[in-house]
Design a protein around this nucleic acid. Structure first.
Length: 625
DNA sequence: GACTCTACGTA
DNA sequence: CGTACGTAGAGTCA
């Protein structure tokens, strides 16, 4: 077996089911440690590209092993399915149906009785070892997976586990064929407009399989991030929380008193009598509770009663008014109250107790959630307030290496659109400087215009500069306009790496429905347009980021210098051995060069320069931010 | 109990 | 009438 050859694995109670290009077999391994050891041995002997229905399914439980496996290469069927199809159902039945080109509506849903089994009209069952069979095999005559097997019958015996692995292997091959079929062609030199299909153009070039590899690596990373967690000094975090929301209450009664004490000055400023008596135990419309500050509607009414008629009570609006001369004192009080309340609710003591264990902040990770395929995390990890970053701290003998991509979205726009002028601007450390020179405006104006183009903003100061953008960078702006047009029309779009971003259709409204309904429809189409316009950039940036993260993970794996502990859209945080930190930091830039060059080739676009800001620190807060 | 709305932290 | 996400509480409907 050559390194990188596909090797499918499933984990059953008694051991592993395995399949490579030649045969399928089972390895007995009862218990987490034995399974981890068996996987690890195969990793060392064969250096395969592991095929699994999902990294979480195989690796999740094995993270608890004394020596968890650290696979270098993977083909994650669920991750590749999400790449190809979008959507959320990435279980084996949906994955197999899509890979085999079958109607997903006919795929078995877990727990469903098998009422099907006869071939769909005109559809041909996939050939191969998995389909060969007895009437009780994993693949039905119509090509869909058998509901029994989807529901877990594959785990009943070692022989069945081996067959299930063979199905996984075959499904990976089917996915690879489909990937090549949807791969976007290079952006035409003459302009961005293209025809046909959500990808814009069909036809293989570049190397779409690379996206499958890095997305699969990100799925492995997600499992490791969920298990490893982010090093967090709980005592330091508690100090930060105390500074914002006050001391930790000993019981619910004390918590209620503290809440009332926080509310009192704001209620007084609003002229609400007897604020200290207000109940805040969750009861709506509590008696004797004239204003619940946690209710935006009640706050709005209270502000109206003191002469402030506002469309909403969002902080930025209150802050703006509070800064004016002669502002009502309630405004400033309310802004300060909101900040503390927000902190207490989202990142207060409850969060500390639930999310932090053994000095680690742990969250559930997804490698490609959301329409555009960004990584997501739970437990408030991706919206950790800056004040708390001081508590994200390397353990003794270790340091943090933090790196974030510079101006990643406009650089990605240069790649995906194939705009040569924007690509030249990306040669500069600060992309906005050459753009500003070309547009003949100040740097800040240029920056706003570029961002406005990518977000679909039409109002405000960016408007005038947008026209200059269109003249100076017609390929890039044309690409964005085209994506917005597709989105507004309800067509799906694809990222550079071929990720399908589903755009929900807008319900058509007859003219008779009235002007308001017609306006709503137009607004909904515009929103879809902005969504699609942004998704092709944001989603492509997510792919580049994951390619980088996968490269970094691979190097850390080989060196044993440390681990990735956080992925934050364009930022990586590594927890590494103190003596290796400088080497790791230097390697991050090289990894970015390698990953971005590979990514540009893979998506069949001219190379564009990417930059990263790298720092070695003890606390996350010490890095620029 | 499931859902929507408002709000707000991060990128 | 600038994108995405996760999360929470109030409020609504059943």
């Amino acid at each position: 077996m050559s390194p990188g050859a596909l090797l499918a694995v499933v984990r059953a109670p008694g051991g592993l089911g395995l399949a490579d290009g030649e045969r399928s077999w089972a390895v007995a391994a009862s218990g987490v440690d034995a399974a981890a050891a068996a996987l690890d041995r195969l990793e060392r002997e064969r250096s395969p590209r592991w095929v699994w229905w999902s990294a979480a399914e195989v690796l999740g439980a094995l993270q608890a092993a004394g020596s968890p496996p650290r696979p270098a290469r993977a083909w994650d069927l669920a991750a590749v399915h999400r790449l190809l199809e979008g959507g959320h159902d990435d279980g084996p039945a949906a994955v197999r149906a899509a890979a085999a080109g079958l109607d997903p509506a006919r795929a078995p849903v877990p727990g469903q009785l098998d009422l099907g089994g006869t071939p769909d009209g005109g559809e041909v069952a996939a050939a191969g070892p998995a389909a060969a069979g007895d009437g009780d095999g994993p693949v039905r005559p119509d090509g869909h997976l058998s509901p029994d097997w989807v529901d877990g019958a594959w785990a009943d015996s070692p022989a069945r586990a081996a067959r299930w692995a063979a199905v996984a292997l075959e499904t990976a091959r089917l996915q690879e064929r489909r990937l090549r079929a949807v791969a976007p062609a290079p952006a035409p030199a003459g302009g961005p407009r293209s025809t046909g299909g959500p990808s814009g153009t069909a036809g293989a070039s570049g190397d779409p399989v690379q996206t499958a590899w890095s997305e699969s690596a990100a799925a492995v990373l997600a499992v490791e991030l969920a298990h490893g967690g982010l090093p967090l000094d709980a005592a330091e975090a508690a100090r930060v929380v105390e500074g914002v929301v006050g001391p930790r209450p000993r019981d619910e009664a004390e918590a209620a008193r503290q809440r009332a004490a926080r509310d009192a000055p704001v209620l007084a400023a609003l002229g609400v009598p007897d604020g200290a008596l207000v109940r805040h135990d969750g009861g709506a419309g509590a008696p004797g509770s004239p204003v619940d500050l946690r209710s935006p509607a009640q706050v709005r009414r209270a502000l109206h009663d003191v002469g402030l008629d506002l469309p909403d009570t969002r902080s930025w609006r209150l802050e703006g008014l509070a800064a004016e001369d002669g502002a009502h004192p309630a405004l400033g009080a309310l802004v300060a109250w909101r900040r503390a309340e927000r902190f207490a609710v989202a990142h207060g003591y409850r969060w500390l107790d639930e999310a932090v264990r053994d000095g680690r902040l742990r969250a559930a990770w997804s490698a490609s959630d959301g329409g555009a395929g960004r990584m997501t995390a739970s437990a408030g990890l991706h919206n950790l307030p800056r004040e708390l970053r001081v508590a994200v701290r390397a353990e003794p003998g270790r340091l943090l290496v933090r790196a974030d991509l510079g101006q990643v979205e406009p650089r990605v726009l240069a790649v995906v659109s194939g705009d040569r002028a924007l690509a030249r601007a990306a040669d500069a450390d600060d992309l906005y400087s050459p753009v500003a020179a070309r547009l003949g405006v100040a740097r800040e104006v240029a920056k706003v215009a570029v961002l406005a183009a990518m977000y679909g903003q039409t109002s405000g100061a960016a408007g005038a500069t947008l026209a200059a953008m269109e003249r100076a960078y017609p390929v890039a702006t044309g690409f964005l306009v085209d994506a917005a047009r597709r989105g507004a029309a309800g067509e799906d779009v694809r990222t550079a790496g071929g990720r399908r971003v589903r755009v929900p259709a807008v319900e058509e409204v007859p003219v008779e429905a009235g002007a308001a309904a017609v306006d709503r429809e137009r607004a909904a189409r515009a929103a879809r347009g902005r969504y699609a316009r942004n998704a092709v950039v944001q989603g492509s940036a997510a792919e580049l980021f994951k390619a980088w993260a996968a490269t970094v993970r691979a190097r850390l794996l080989a060196s044993g210098d440390g681990e990735v502990v956080l992925c934050l859209h364009d930022e990586l945080l590594l927890h590494v051995r103190e003596d290796a930190a400088q080497d790791v930091a230097a390697g991050l830039a090289r990894d970015l060069e390698a990953a971005s060059a590979r990514w540009c080739r893979a998506v069949a676009r001219p190379p564009v320069r990417f930059t990263a800001d790298v720092a070695v620190v003890e606390r996350w807060s010490q890095a620029k931010g």
